[in-house]
């Protein structure tokens, strides 16, 4: 199977980032896993990766909502205004624990491909890849 070039994990919880990196690494779906601890870092990372070379720009961003400094929503609002040529190719998926209808309403107006309730599992990643990246059909680690 071919791998995604880069997946950007945005979460302030380092434990979560550790477990997700562990999971994605185990699944071996990306060549590069980049972690940002909040929205601002994520913005900087995206700007940095996507201007340097075509290959480094993330194909998938897994975005947490509640974060200090700049949360997921704020990131999305800022991200919209980034002058990026590759923006249309980046799939952003919101990882939520929130069931707040207020947040959901806001999210619908933002450029996201979908939401996945935490915690992230192997099944959820497989499903996500099938949905958004049909050409990259990840093999199950077991199979």
């Amino acid at each position: 199977m071919s791998k995604l070039s880069t997946i950007l994990l945005v979460d302030d919880d380092t434990t979560t980032n550790f477990l997700n990196k562990l999971l994605l690494t185990r699944l071996a779906v990306a060549e590069q896993l980049v972690v940002a601890l909040n929205g601002r870092e994520a913005l900087a990372t995206v700007q940095q990766l996507c201007t340097a070379s075509d290959t480094g720009c993330p194909a998938l961003i897994l975005l947490d909502v509640n974060m200090p400094v700049m949360n997921g929503i704020e990131f999305l609002e800022a991200y919209q205004h980034l002058p990026l040529a590759q923006r249309g190719a980046i799939i952003i998926v919101l990882l939520t624990t929130s069931v707040s209808p207020r947040d959901l309403t806001r999210v619908q107006t933002l450029p996201i491909a979908g939401t996945v309730p935490k915690p992230l599992t192997a099944e959820k990643i497989q499903l996500l890849l099938q949905q958004h990246f049909p050409s990259f059909s990840a093999d199950s680690p077991d199979g």
Partner: peptide, 21 residues
């Protein structure tokens, strides 16, 4: 209640994940 349910979810998921790991 919302915050509790939300904020408690993440660490418990992590603990669960860490236990599995």
């Amino acid at each position: 209640i919302y915050t509790a349910s939300h904020d408690l979810k993440a660490p418990i998921h992590n603990i669960e994940g860490l236990l599995q790991a």
